[in-house]
Structure formats: C-alpha cells, structure tokens
C-alpha cells in the first residue's frame, strides 16, 4: 500500500507540473484526462473490485452536472454546489444500488444502462428547473484571465483525481475491498462465508457514484453550458469501462494508465484519421483487450517477471 501511495504521489506531482507548458491545448487535454481518470477509477469500485458491469457512470455524471448547475442557478456558491452534487450522487447511488444490485451480470448491465436515459428524459421535461432541451448556462467564474481559469479547473480535477485515488487505495486495502474481491470471485460463496453482500455491493456502488457526481458538476462549471445529450451521453459509461479494461481491471494504477492511454490514442487517431477515427480507435481497443486481457498494467508485471532470475 505504501509503495502504491508513493508512486501515486510522484505521478500526481509530475502531472501538477503540466501548467508550466503554458499551452491551452495541453491544459485542456490534461483536465480531460484527469476527469476521465476520475470516471475510470470510480467504475473500478463496482466493475473492477465487485465485478458488476455498471453502465451508470453517465447517469451519475449527468446528475452531478445538473445538480451543480441548478444549485448555482439558485445562488449556491460554486464549491458548495460541487460538493452537494457529489452528495446527491452518493444518495442516488445508494437508492439505485439497493434496487439494481439484486440483478447480476448482463441483467445488471442493462438495468444500469437505462438509468441515464431515464434521467435525461426527466431533465428534458423539467423545463422550468433545467431549461430542458435548451440547456443551462452557468455563471462564468470571475477570474483574471482565460489562462487562470484553465489552470484553476485543471487543479480542481487534479485534486478530485487524487481524492478518488486515495479512496480507491484505502478501499482496496480494507475489509471492504477484500469483501468485494470475494463477491467478484463467487458471490454465493462469499455470502456463505459471512459477507453481507448487499451492504458491500451498495457501498461499492456509492463509491462509484460520488466522485463522478462531483466530476460532472466541475465539468459543468468548466464548460459553462450543459445540455442533456451532452452530460447524459452513454459514451461516458462506455469510455470509463474501456479505459479500465485497457489499463487493467481491479488494479490500482490500471484506471489511470487506461485513461491516459485512451485519451492519447483518441487524440492521435483523431488527428491522423479524421474520417475513420472511431473505427480505427475501436479496432485498436479490440486488439488491446484481446491480446492484453489484464490490461496495459500487466505489461509492467510481465516485464518485471522476465527480469527476475529463476
């Protein structure tokens, strides 16, 4: 655990140096990467540790974005609105978890997939509160320059990513994380051994919701304008899963490595193959998952093992 914490500290410190580049492009890319990292790490709680293939990331993200935006519309200061959005996502995840986590496998996946759709329709129809399909404008943070704003949101995302990582590290090295691993391996056997499976699964689901909710609210403030199809986009769920699988499910650094790798691939492919970029990207991901089922993170373990004398 100490080793992981030290590696993470160095990693986050290095990322924190990014604003020195002074380029808006890199700042935007860095902020997006950290946000993706939060989504991927959050998915790791329920999908990687407990083995429940959740597609609810988009639901938590959109919920957080709208909660933060609506709260600010009513004059709640930005920081409080973000925290409030996280808490709302936490409570929502608890209620949703009690209902959905009775399902297993594909059934759970499908049920969690429709949650974002339901929320999107709700937001669409609650025009008075949310602006419906016209979207919602957010107050632009009063800051000296556009650069200062970009830096501000970069550091907020960095902080959020660090908090999420810490939560993941603590969970993985606790009774909760161990119980989740038991559930992932064999749920009925875990039940027989005294694991309160419902409580553990709902806890994991709540952890997978809270940080995504905050990320959604921060995202809304960052881009000043949100609309339902943007923040309830199912691609947030899909990307989170792809990133974790790419990096290595259930591992500590897998989600972060996956987020960085995914975003780099996305940028590279998009720049070089403008017309067919989604196809090329999809193909590369399929190949990676096929040939590296335990993710990119397993590469380092493989190399490490090769280095050792037998």
């Amino acid at each position: 655990m100490k080793r992981d914490a030290s590696i993470a500290l160095v990693l986050f410190a290095l990322v924190a140096l990014l604003p020195l580049s002074g380029e808006a492009y890199w700042m935007r890319l860095g902020t997006t990467m950290l946000m993706y990292g939060v989504l991927a790490m959050s998915w790791n709680f329920i999908g990687g540790m407990a083995g429940y293939p959740s597609f609810a990331v988009a639901a938590f993200f959109g919920l957080g974005a709208y909660a933060g935006a609506v709260a600010q519309k009513f004059g709640v200061p930005m920081g409080f609105a973000w925290v409030g959005a996280g808490l709302l996502a936490l409570v929502f995840a608890a209620l949703l978890g009690v209902a959905l986590l009775r399902l297993r496998g594909h059934y759970f996946a499908i049920a969690s997939l429709v949650v974002a759709e339901v929320l999107r329709e709700l937001v669409n129809s609650m025009t008075g509160l949310t602006g419906g399909g016209m979207g919602l404008n957010l107050p632009i943070p009063a800051m000296a320059s556009v650069d200062a704003q970009a830096r501000f949101f970069f550091y907020v995302m960095l902080l959020l990513a660090a908090v999420t990582f810490t939560a993941m590290l603590i969970t993985a090295n606790s009774k909760l994380g161990f119980g989740l691993r038991c559930i992932q391996q064999n749920e009925s056997a875990a039940d027989m051994l005294g694991v309160d499976t419902t409580f553990y699964k709902v806890s994991a689901f709540m952890l997978s919701g809270v940080f995504v909710g905050v990320a959604g609210a921060v995202y809304a403030s960052w881009v000043y304008y949100i609309e339902p199809p943007d923040v309830f986009d199912v691609l947030y769920s899909v990307k989170a899963i792809v990133m974790v699988l790419l990096g290595g499910a259930g591992s500590m650094f897998g989600p972060l490595v996956g987020a960085a790798a995914f975003l780099s691939l996305e940028e590279l492919v998009w720049r070089n193959y403008l017309e067919v970029h989604t196809g090329v990207l999809g193909l590369m991901i399929v190949l990676l998952v096929l040939f590296l089922p335990k993710g990119l993170i397993s590469l380092s373990q493989r190399l490490g093992r090769r280095g050792k004398l037998r």
Binding site: R181, C182, N186, S188, A189, A190
Partner: peptide
C-alpha cells in the same frame, strides 16, 4: 461441489 475463490 467445492467453492473456493479461485483467483485468491
């Protein structure tokens, strides 16, 4: 039918 956690 024995039920260990195979990956542990």
């Amino acid at each position: 039918i024995v039920q260990p956690f195979p990956g542990m």
